[in-house]
C-alpha cells in the first residue's frame, strides 16, 4: 500500500517538475515549485526521514518560494522564448539519462538492509546514541555531536551566504537609500487594508513561533532541531512582515539584531567547541562540559542547537529584508 502511494507521489513529482520547466510564466513556475517541495517533503516522510521532511516543508515550500517571489517583483515574471535550439541540450540530457538509468541497475533495491550504505557507521550511531547521549532522536545526535564538524561548517556556509547577499544587495542603483526614505508602496504597507488575512495571520503568528520553539527545544526527543526551528520562526516573522509591512517588522527585529543573531549563533557554536578544548577535551567534544559525560553531551547539543537556530533564523530574515528593501529599477 505504502509502495503504491510512493510510486504515485514520485510520478506526480516528475510531472510537477516537467510542468515547472515547461511554463513560460515564472510566477506559475514558482508556485509549482512550492507544490514540488511539498510533494518532496511527503516522499521524504514515506522514506522515514521525518526531520528532513519537516525541513523541506518549512524551507522549500515556505522560504524559497518567498525568495523567488521577492526576486520576481524586481525582475518581472515573463520568460522570453529562448532562441537557441533545444536539440543539442535535449541530446545531452538524453545521453546522460541513459547512462544514469543504466547505472541504477547496479543499485541495491530500495530498502535492502544488506546495502553497503547500511553497513558502515550507521549501526554504530544507532547503537551508541542511547549510551552516549541518552536521548531518542538519533538524527539530532549525529547532526550535533557525532558529525558536529560538518554542521559547524554548514552554519558558516549559511553565514557566508548571508553576508554575500547583504553585500550584493546593499550597493548598486536599486540600493535602499537611507537619506530619502522611499514612498510607501504597496508591499511596504503590507496587507493593512485587508482585514481578514491580517486578523487570521496575526492569530496564527504566535502559534507558528511557539511551534518553532517547540521544534527547537524538543529536537532531541522528536523530529526537529535548530535548522527546522530557525526556518519555522523565520517563516512566522516573514508572515508578520507581509501583514504589517516591512517597516513594522524591522521595528520588531531590526537588521542589526538579525546580523547579531547570525554571527552570534555561529560564534556560540564555535565557542562550545573552544570551551570543550579549554576543559581538556577535543574540539566539539561535549562530554567534558559536565562531570557526567552523558549530561555534558546533552548540554553541548542543546547549546549548539540554539546557536544553529539563531544563525539560520537570523540569516533567512536578513536575506528576506535585503530583498524586500530593494527598489525596483527601470
Amino acid at each position: 500500500m505504502v509502495t503504491l502511494f510512493a510510486v504515485f507521489l514520485l510520478t506526480l513529482l516528475v510531472l510537477t517538475a516537467i510542468a515547472v520547466v515547461q511554463t513560460k510564466n515564472l510566477f506559475v513556475a514558482v508556485m509549482l515549485m512550492g507544490i514540488f517541495s511539498l510533494l518532496m517533503a511527503t516522499v521524504f516522510f514515506i522514506l522515514d526521514a521525518a526531520d528532513v521532511a519537516l525541513t523541506e516543508a518549512a524551507v522549500g515550500a515556505g522560504i524559497s518560494t518567498m525568495l523567488f517571489l521577492a526576486t520576481l517583483a524586481l525582475t518581472g515574471e515573463h520568460e522570453k522564448p529562448s532562441k537557441k535550439g533545444p536539440w543539442i541540450s535535449g541530446l545531452v540530457v538524453a545521453i546522460t539519462s541513459l547512462i544514469l538509468i543504466d547505472a541504477t541497475f547496479e543499485q541495491p533495491y530500495l530498502g535492502d538492509p544488506m546495502a553497503p550504505v547500511q553497513q558502515h557507521v550507521a549501526p554504530w550511531y544507532l547503537e551508541m546514541t542511547p549510551e552516549l547521549m541518552d536521548f531518542p532522536n538519533v538524527v539530532t545526535a549525529v547532526l550535533a555531536s557525532f558529525r558536529g564538524y560538518d554542521t559547524l561548517g554548514e552554519v558558516f556556509v549559511v553565514l557566508t551566504a548571508c553576508i554575500g547577499v547583504l553585500f550584493i544587495l546593499s550597493a548598486g542603483p536599486g540600493a535602499p537609500n537611507p537619506k530619502s526614505p522611499r514612498i510607501p508602496t504597496a508591499p511596504s504597507v503590507g496587507l493593512r487594508h485587508h482585514l481578514i488575512p491580517r486578523v487570521v495571520g496575526k492569530l496564527l503568528i504566535p502559534f507558528i513561533v511557539l511551534f518553532g520553539l517547540y521544534v527547537q527545544f524538543h529536537g532531541e526527543y522528536s523530529p526537529g532541531g535548530g535548522f527546522q526551528a530557525g526556518a519555522i520562526i523565520a517563516a512566522g516573522m516573514i508572515l508578520y512582515a507581509l501583514l504589517e509591512g516591512e517597516k513594522q517588522a524591522l521595528k520588531v527585529l531590526p537588521q542589526s539584531v538579525l546580523i547579531g543573531m547570525v554571527v552570534g549563533g555561529a560564534m556560540l557554536y564555535g565557542m562550545v567547541g573552544v570551551v570543550g578544548m579549554l576543559m581538556g577535551g577535543n574540539f566539539l567534544d561535549y562530554s567534558v562540559l559536565s562531570s557526567n559525560p552523558v549530561s555534558g553531551q546533552q548540554i553541548g547539543i542543546l547549546i549548539i542547537e540554539i546557536g544553529v537556530g539563531l544563525a539560520v533564523c537570523g540569516a533567512l530574515l536578513a536575506i528576506f529584508h535585503a530583498f524586500a528593501a530593494r527598489r525596483s529599477v527601470g
Binding site: 485587508h194 488575512p197 496564527l204
Partner: peptide, 13 residues
C-alpha cells in the same frame, strides 16, 4: 482548527 482558519482566508485572499 488551523486548516479551517487558513483555508477560507486563503480563498478570500
Amino acid at each position: 482548527v488551523f486548516l479551517l482558519l487558513t483555508g477560507p482566508t486563503a480563498a478570500y485572499a
